[in-house]
Design a protein around this nucleic acid. Structure first.
Lengths: 234, 234
DNA sequence: TACCTTGTAGTCAAATTGACTATAAGAATT
DNA sequence: AATTCTTATAGTCAATTTGACTACAAGGTA
């Protein structure tokens, strides 16, 4: 095992490790992902996952938050590590290992203001993504797979839906993630039996049909189920 | 985004990234984990997860295989990435990010011969692990959690059990992972209904009670279920 | 007022579950 | 040779859950 070596060319250590963020949103019944155009560098003017370098004295989780905020203006978001991608040639000019982070959020909560390192930031439908640079396509595929699996053993939606939502909105979300249709009454029966939802005693506004009841998550039950896990099969 | 910089102090880049392996086995109805004593370095003579440095021009997956083999003599094993651990101070002398890998295997398949970088390698019961250095305790906890979750949405056992095994051995495995008792007839009913097991039409040998039938996994069904996922709740 | 559209409740047979009991098959003991 | 272990395997049964439906409610809109 190597001994300590003080001849550290620190900036290069920093450069060897990057972060890429998969920021997932849900809007108009569709899954969205946030992409940015970097202002400079090799992939200038190309849409890519938001990301950048980890600083030498920065925890990787902290780096993910910082980069996300710098590039998109998105703050106070829940991030979770997905996986490290470390193929030798995944990045053209040198060896870079990237750690992919994954977040679920509400697009309408954020006014995107690309930071000084990105020239633009935009939500894309997950069904219609431009060709991404490096191995970003592969990272995105992996993230979608994980999301599909996640939905089956943890509650989901707390970060994706508005605070108050209808059962049909929640079903739409599940359908978008699982990529299949779910029976309306059966979904309702199953989800309400979980004790996860609290009725708001309020109705949807300005819809041109019967207004649905609004619900919100019981944060306590939600967190408990998230930790303990459950089984949700359709 | 930084440009290419050729003043790379490569050995230091290498040193900044390490791999740690969690090699899980199942023996005498107990989950085991493989630990090593490093021959040299800061934690000489202390039991720790097998691991080491990733070379500059080496894929991280390849590095995991190489290191595992160098340290323990274990070859041809299925490794899967668990997570990157990147707290700034997780390693004493400098900033090291480690990528944890995770494998399920059969201890009896390997004759451990610690390589030149390890002075010893040994299987420990997962219920009785010595204090591990760095953040290895935390990594191990994380791995146990993941295993517990994994068992619920994927078949497990193919790499942990002998080729031919009894239903009770399989149940013992599930009990060890889930850390709870499972009803014998109900377990049998559930697992056999999955079409995952093929009866060998052979019986257990030299047991001092009624001999049980031996089964093996249907590799095709197993792989399909592993890919597609299922739900296994007790 | 009729007729859309979506929300919500309820039905019912089939399948699954959880908690059991009962019996079978050997080996070991008497 | 009979009895007594121990573990294997089959089966029972009520309660719950599921999947595939039907029916009706509650609005807006034509």
């Amino acid at each position: 095992m190597p001994q300590k070596n003080n001849n550290v060319f620190s900036s290069e250590i920093i450069n060897a490790l990057s972060i890429d963020c998969l920021i997932i949103g849900f809007q108009e019944s569709k899954l969205k992902i946030l992409l940015v155009q970097h202002a400079e560098g090799i992939i200038k003017n190309q849409w890519a996952l938001p990301g950048g370098w980890v600083a030498y004295n920065e925890n990787i989780d902290a780096a993910a938050y910082r980069l996300l905020n710098d590039l998109t203006g998105v703050k106070e978001i829940y991030l979770e590590q997905l996986k490290a991608f470390g193929e030798v040639n995944r990045y053209p000019s040198k060896r870079v290992i990237t750690i992919a982070y994954f977040a679920l959020t509400r697009p309408e909560n954020f006014e995107l203001h690309p930071g000084f390192t990105a020239s633009d930031a935009k939500w894309f439908s997950i069904l219609d993504i431009p060709k991404l640079p490096y191995d970003h396509d592969q990272i995105l595929d992996f993230a979608r797979q994980i999301l599909k699996r996640k939905v089956k053993y943890e509650p989901i939606g707390f970060n994706l839906l508005p605070e108050k939502f209808t059962l049909l909105q929640l079903r739409d979300l599940y359908e978008a993630i699982l990529e299949k249709k779910l029976d309306k009454p059966n979904f309702r029966r199953k989800i309400t039996k979980m004790n996860l939802l609290i009725p708001c005693n309020e109705k949807q506004q300005s819809v041109s049909h019967r207004a649905a009841n609004l619900y919100r998550f019981d944060k306590l039950v939600y967190d408990k189920l998230k930790k303990k896990g459950f089984i949700f099969e359709f």
